[in-house]
Amino acid sequence: MADQVFWDDVEEGTKLPEVVKNPTTQQLVKYAGASGDYYQIHYDQGFAKNNDLDDVILHGALKNAFLGHLVTKWMGPDGDLKRLACQYRGMDIPGTPVTAKGVVTKKYQEQGANLVDCDIWLENEKGEKTTPGSATIALPTR
């Protein structure tokens, strides 16, 4: 079982353990099937090029899922995800790794819940934040 993180032990500035993903064209096809998003820019290179793209690109929603993985892995079995937001600022292509990162920006209590806000983002090999976002998580206390 995954370790449990407790609200008591978290501070502003606490970093979330990184999650590294190595998306391939095969993963994009698997994701297309699993999500039902068959838009051809994610697996048909000719179609992508006709749409002014250099290559097939990762589904935005797959990058959203990578960020979901980052926060749910960190919050542990007793954490509750309240909000997950991200913007697709830069495109990512299969064959290059992306790293999901996050940091706690606020720790507070609201309506009986022990909450933290986090900045989260996906970073490409060049260190560019292609997919910035934020999350709110309720954590258990000791």
Partner: peptide
């Protein structure tokens, strides 16, 4: 007709 996804904000 061309479509891009700009982002998502989920509340649970």
């Amino acid at each position: 007709t061309r479509l891009l996804d700009g982002g998502s904000d989920w509340e649970y």
